[in-house]
Design a protein around this nucleic acid. Structure first.
Lengths: 261, 261
DNA sequence: GAGTGGTCTAGACCACGCC
DNA sequence: GCGTGGTCTAGACCACTCC
């Protein structure tokens, strides 16, 4: 029955037969999630190699003592992540490598930190100001209404990388300058119970003005990377609007896109 | 029972009670998909306004004559798109406006065309060349192996916007220069049966060289937006590598991110 | 406590890809 | 024809939120 690959078709041979999964039904962690994590680990570890077939869902569910929908839910979550591909009439295969890492609403601070870039921050302004028209429109507040203005310089290894200008609804959270200098804005928002959900970004380029150049230790006219972003929480309310400027000589946006079927 | 909103909590009032959905069980279109589309239309149309509660899944499934998992599948697809938010113990709500449009692996040609920008293309080179080291690495072919090199200038309203340099595996598809001038590369790949699945992009900026400036009708030293992209098909094989240069004065990347929970 | 979504089960039939 | 994933059903219990 589960005999496969007698006359293998070039590459795909059903692996996973010998893999054993440990599911803990007493755990509060959902079964589909436990399975998904273990499959992901097997892929990451190379036990499940690119091109490998996963074996059909029915067998898998029997072997694991799970229902088929539960197994499907686990597999689907990995398909959504781009690690697996399903083909009707064929099977489920591990994607041919390289493609990993889902797209995320990136926090510059976290990005730099996880890249070992040793980020630091200097807060230049942190105060309440009346909203200008563009900011008011982006945040959905009345023009002239009170908002929080934040200007920061971000450094890596002691040299400037970016000038960050952010606007937030005044009542959203406490923005302690000291904490802002030791961590990122998004991390502060998260720990204040704000769940980021989506963002709209525009990325462009332009030449540095004299003031920008001196702030960022560039020459006037140097190419700068610009980003405008409005971020929304999980109810769709705007929680942050910002215009950021990056030294193109020291920074680039790096991200991955998945095509939704 | 289904009495709601007697003393409404500020905003959320259960709508949708009066909406009727037309499900066609004889159609080959999945029921969950039919439902999802109609819900999406209702949201788009404003019948379901931001903050509106959807009403609980059980009632909905009974009213529609569907099982709860099917209704959930429809709702989940809209949650994935960022149109709805689920809250345990509360209900499912329409997200507060603004946030629409999923992120897509954008085709420059399609983007420009749908924005009414009247894109045209001039093919500068379309030939087979040996792969250099960086291209070979990106496409997963041996260094020096045969690949297709494509150089194009993209115009809108008759003025240059971008210089596109692309590399493709030589055997991937027929790249007719005439067709390339009248449509986009991705559209040609799609109609050749290639399913794009994901891409890895790097977006940066730099100053224009003299050659670049003359090609793009800019001044030397002008800020340019740069993009490198490797695109993969649904088995994870690289199908395209490209380095693009955009006139920052005429183009910016505009995209939306969704945070996956 | 009442109501909601989150998870899970054990089946079923269909559509598609391949031989 | 056979095996695969795609869809669908009719229940069940649990966890969380709000009153």
């Amino acid at each position: 029955m589960a005999r496969t690959g007698d006359r293998a078709r070039a590459v795909p041979v059903s692996a996973l037969d010998s893999l054993d999964f440990a599911l803990d039904r007493t755990s509060p962690v959902p079964l589909y999630y436990q399975l998904a994590r273990q499959l992901e680990a097997a892929i990451e570890h190379g036990t499940l190699a690119p091109g490998n077939l996963l074996g059909n869902e029915i067998d898998l569910s029997v072997r694991l003592g799970l229902s088929r929908p539960t197994v499907r839910q686990a597999i689907q979550s990995l398909v959504d992540k781009g690690l697996l591909v399903r083909r009707r009439g064929v099977g489920t295969q591990v994607v041919h490598s390289q493609v990993r890492r889902p797209l995320e609403l990136s926090s510059l601070y976290d990005d730099l930190e996880s890249a070992g870039q040793d980020p630091t921050t200097r807060v230049l302004r942190n105060e309440s100001v009346p909203a200008t028209a563009d900011v008011a429109a982006a945040l959905g507040v009345p023009e002239g209404g009170e908002i929080t203005l934040l200007e920061r310089l971000r450094f890596t290894h002691g040299r400037p990388v970016a000038f960050l200008c952010n606007y937030l609804p005044a009542t959203l959270l406490q923005l302690d300058t000291e904490r802002l200098e030791s961590t990122g804005l998004y991390r502060m928002m998260r720990s204040a119970g704000i769940t980021l959900h989506s963002a709209r970004q525009t990325v462009g380029a332009r030449s540095a003005t004299a003031e920008e150049a001196s702030r960022l230790d560039e020459k006037e006219g140097a190419a700068l990377l610009t980003m405008q972003r409005t971020a929304y929480d999980d109810t769709g309310r705007p929680v942050e609007y910002g215009t950021h400027i990056y030294r193109a000589s020291r920074y680039a946006f790096d991200f991955q896109l998945l095509v939704r079927p």
